[in-house]
Computed example of a mutant assay.
Amino acid sequence: MTLIVSGLAEVPAIVAKRRPSHMITLLDPASMIGTPEGLEPDRHLKLAVNDIAEPMDGLVLPQETLVHNLIRFAADWDETRPMLIHCWAGISRSTASAFVIACERSPDAAELDIAMALRAAAVHASPNRRIVALADDVMGRRGRMVDAVAAMGDYDYNLARPFEFSARHGHAG
């Protein structure tokens, strides 16, 4: 199983080269994009959300419904082709979503192992803490997802680049 995580700017090239079967877009409402050519509209989940962890006037805070939508959408993915997950920069909302899907797909893997595989794949990954905390609650992980992301340590957003992440058992690839 391969998840490709990127920023918005890289989406057209990744769709053309890798031909993902599914795509998740996490952007603020004003920046939402249409479904790229070559991808079926029902295989493109659009989540209008800002990259925030606390309420802020005029911005869309991630809610529990976002996590339910991620899990439901990923459940229909047969893994034969990659899934592309992107946000504006490929640092926070998209890496949180990849982590959530990886945890959901690998229920027997330790959350810490998945988080460390994410860190190994992307030194710039800084999963949105609110999305992770909501998923931790929804998935009944008792704080293990939150603790695992905290254990990832510092990140370097200057090194942001598209990366692949194999969700199965937390292996980076």
Results as ranks from 00 to 15, higher is better:
149 V>T: 03
56 M>V: 10
53 A>I: 10
118 L>C: 06
150 A>K: 14
21 S>T: 13
16 A>S: 13
99 F>Q: 00
4 I>R: 01
156 D>V: 12
51 D>W: 03
22 H>I: 07
137 D>R: 12
147 D>M: 15
141 R>K: 15
132 V>N: 00
15 V>N: 01
138 V>I: 15
96 A>V: 07
93 R>F: 05
52 I>G: 02
87 C>Q: 01
111 E>C: 11
145 M>L: 09
25 T>G: 05
19 R>L: 14
30 A>F: 12
95 T>C: 09
20 P>C: 09
87 C>A: 10
66 L>V: 11
147 D>G: 09
131 I>W: 00
71 I>P: 02
29 P>T: 11
147 D>K: 14
49 V>K: 01
123 V>H: 04
168 R>P: 03
65 T>G: 08
122 A>V: 05
67 V>R: 00
4 I>C: 06
146 V>R: 04
74 A>R: 02
163 F>P: 00
163 F>W: 04
170 G>N: 05
141 R>M: 13
119 R>M: 08
76 D>W: 08
5 V>C: 08
119 R>H: 13
8 L>Y: 03
126 S>R: 07
24 I>W: 00
126 S>H: 04
77 W>H: 06
131 I>P: 00
46 K>I: 08
78 D>M: 15
122 A>I: 07
17 K>I: 12
161 R>E: 12
147 D>N: 14
45 L>A: 03
132 V>Y: 00
120 A>P: 02
97 S>N: 06
86 H>Q: 09
107 P>Q: 15
123 V>Y: 05
22 H>Y: 06
82 P>A: 08
145 M>F: 04
157 Y>L: 12
39 L>H: 00
93 R>H: 09
128 N>I: 05
111 E>I: 07
164 E>A: 10
86 H>D: 06
102 A>Y: 03
62 P>T: 07
80 T>P: 04
11 V>M: 11
143 G>H: 07
117 A>F: 02
148 A>D: 01
77 W>I: 05
97 S>A: 13
23 M>P: 00
156 D>L: 14
13 A>T: 09
147 D>F: 05
112 L>P: 01
111 E>A: 10
74 A>S: 12
74 A>Y: 01
99 F>K: 01
18 R>I: 10
85 I>F: 02
160 A>F: 03
159 L>N: 10
160 A>P: 01
55 P>E: 09
5 V>S: 02
12 P>K: 13
29 P>L: 13
127 P>Y: 02
110 A>Y: 08
172 A>V: 14
79 E>A: 13
70 L>Q: 02
158 N>V: 13
160 A>T: 07
39 L>G: 00
19 R>H: 12
102 A>S: 09
162 P>G: 08
110 A>V: 11
34 G>H: 08
59 L>F: 12
76 D>K: 13
152 M>H: 02
59 L>K: 13
35 T>D: 04
